[in-house]
Design a protein around this nucleic acid. Structure first.
Lengths: 151, 151
DNA sequence: ATATTTTAAGTGTATATGCTCATATTATGA
DNA sequence: TCATAATATGAGCATATACACTTAAAATAT
């Protein structure tokens, strides 16, 4: 009986189908596209999302926003830092003094408004290149994934 | 004629459909699931991917691997650091002395082998919870996305 | 054969992500 | 009311990501 060689090789082929790896790969690709498109605005795609979220919620606490964005609270806190440093947002204690509430500054609002066309352009380009059907399918799959695997 | 109020509110609703944001959100969710499942192995999902890739390619240069993984070269360099520190991989100059080639150490091979069942379990859980059909659709969409938007 | 160009890689800087632990404040229960 | 539990946050630590710039080595062109 010949000893079976380590089947490491065969196993690792499966790894090309790793859900995590493929998601991260696609995220790298798309984030680079968006960051590149947003470059003239001075803010990144991630930062744009935060400004837009704060704009649409109005005043909101950190924990609250982290739940809306399905983002770790401490990650959000860190991500807010560069926005606060550049005075795009204001962070002040809430009525419940455990909380800190977020609001856009005038500068933040202006930055968001100026950035919107660039975001829209990037988004439109992605939809066009993927085709609307594929894009809708992608978003649908991503949404299912978060809903089903979240928590 | 009534003046239209700032349509910032309406605009930002679209942002919930931001391709970049939704990808990042799903990636956060899935990465947390994988990292959690891999926790007993002492390596993270991202690191597992690197070990598996090096194992399947055999000796490989950094640039080469970065292209295989569709990953920025400098990102790969940084990601290799903790693996090298823990002596899971060896980085040595290649024949072309501009290059540095990567190989698994014995410890790296052992770590990869021990990690495989945990990765498989996480992957199986994801496929089961999403259902195989949805999972295949997701992977297909991610692959299209990278192929179409890459470069 | 040497000057020029191309290619591979490392480093500085900045952001993004999330776990663990510590602290402050509010809510609750005896 | 006062001790305890629950909640909101920040900070330390480690990794992940990528642009711009620099350096070294190989390829090429004259």
């Amino acid at each position: 009986m010949t000893s079976t060689p380590s089947n490491l090789q065969n196993e690792t082929l499966d790894v090309e189908e790793c859900t995590c790896f493929n998601l991260r790969k696609a995220t790298r690709t798309v984030t680079q596209l968006f960051d590149d498109a947003m470059q003239p605005t001075g803010i990144r795609a991630t930062q744009f999302t935060l400004l837009a979220a704060i704009s649409s919620t109005g005043t909101v606490a950190i924990r609250q926003l982290s739940q809306i964005l399905v983002m770790d609270r401490t990650t959000l806190t860190r991500n807010l830092k560069p926005l606060e440093t550049r005075r795009l947002i204001k962070i002040v204690p809430g009525e419940d003094r455990r909380t800190r509430t977020l609001t856009l500054t005038d500068k933040g609002r202006k930055t968001l408004e100026k950035s919107l066309p660039f975001w829209r352009k990037a988004q439109a380009e992605v939809i066009e290149r993927l085709t609307p059907k594929r894009w809708r399918d992608l978003l649908k799959q991503l949404d299912s994934t978060v809903k089903i695997l979240g928590d």
